[in-house]
């Protein structure tokens, strides 16, 4: 039964791809479309990858969406004051890091439940985003062309015979975050300790793991990831407004849960999160191409999430 979980969601993932491939034989599995999808999911992917870090400890972070908005808005408002691109990006990343540190401090040192702590900071960061931007969208000439241009550039694939195609910069950035997160969680003692905390906090204490400090660092990394995603989003739309990251949070948590249902141990692992993100992204892309009502997509995502997690729960019970 233990293998069910590891194979079940994967079978579902393959079934989704197969369905679209059959219904859209000419436009779904093509280099152009897949590169498109990789760009479309890149922002969600970065949030979901770094969300995996706190979820490895059995915690989660509700504030990522508003922190992404805040970071984007901070960079954009700095642009309106003629601050250089590197400086504005650095400031926005520091905002994300600080926001994450505050989350970690509230959870680990003050001892507030992550749900409540990050619900509180969600509201704070969202309010701050409105305050910084004055509630307005910053766009147009205020956004430097090079900043908006970044998301439209990439590595050309002409040499591979793929004329006019390129690997989008945003996809490359997401890949780098994936590699970094994978290395931290799977290859470093830091990651192993997070999973130990997730399995049993008391045992982690007894084993001499510095639980509080690790939690602080984990939440800081998740906050940093949110700000990276916020900047990517601002570059993609060449503008920033105080709510544009709001949709990222629930989708990111859904992606991690989809990934967890994939893994034998039920733990969140970042490569499995990638499969979750791909499922959500390919569904959006395929259903749009099939002209399926956009509201129906939401229902379908919920159904798939429940099926995947439901199967995990059933297999646990049977064990």
């Amino acid at each position: 039964m233990a293998t069910l979980r590891s194979v079940g969601t994967l079978a579902g993932f393959i079934a989704i791809i197969a369905t679209f491939w059959v219904l859209l034989p000419e436009t779904f599995i093509t280099p152009r479309n897949l590169l498109n999808v990789s760009q479309q999911i890149s922002m969600l992917a970065v949030v979901a990858f770094t969300m995996t870090i706190v979820m490895a400890m059995n915690d989660f972070d509700l504030s990522v969406g508003s922190l992404a908005s805040l970071s984007g808005v901070v960079a954009a408002v700095l642009f309106t004051h003629d601050v250089s691109i590197p400086l504005a990006i650095t400031a926005a990343l520091l905002v994300g890091l600080a926001g994450g540190l505050l989350n970690g401090w509230l959870v680990s040192y003050i001892g507030i439940l992550p749900f409540v702590a990050t619900l509180g900071t969600l509201t704070i960061y969202s309010g701050a985003a409105f305050l910084v931007s004055g509630g307005k969208t910053v766009f147009g000439r205020d956004i430097p062309a090079a900043f908006g241009g970044f998301s439209r550039n990439g590595i050309p694939l002409d040499t591979l015979g793929l004329e006019k195609l390129k690997i989008p910069s945003l996809s490359i950035l997401a890949l780098l975050v994936l590699l970094g997160t994978w290395y931290l969680l799977e290859k470093r003692i830091f990651g192993r300790h997070l999973y130990v905390i997730g399995n049993n906090k008391e045992a982690a204490h007894v084993a001499g793991i510095k639980v509080k400090r690790l939690k602080l660092i984990a939440f800081a990394l998740t906050g940093l990831g949110a700000s990276i995603a916020g900047l990517m989003l601002a570059s993609r739309v060449a503008s920033a407004n105080p709510t544009q990251g709001a949709g990222l949070m629930l989708d990111a948590i859904a992606a991690v849960f989809l990934g967890m249902s994939l893994h034998r141990s039920g733990e969140p692992h970042v490569l499995a999160t990638l499969v979750g993100v791909l499922m959500l992204g390919l569904l959006d892309n395929g259903l749009t191409q099939l002209s399926v009502d956009s509201y129906f997509r939401e229902i379908l995502v919920g159904v798939i999430l429940l099926i995947a997690v439901g199967f995990s729960a059933l297999s646990n019970k049977n064990n």
């Binding site: 436009t27 989003l233 892309n285 749009t288 956009s294």
Partner: peptide, 19 residues
């Protein structure tokens, strides 16, 4: 309807182009 999400408008335009 991307429900307020402007970035998603770009994604959906790309999908419509692919379609």
């Amino acid at each position: 309807d991307t429900q307020g999400d402007v970035a998603a408008v770009i994604s959906r335009i790309e999908d419509a182009v692919t379609q």
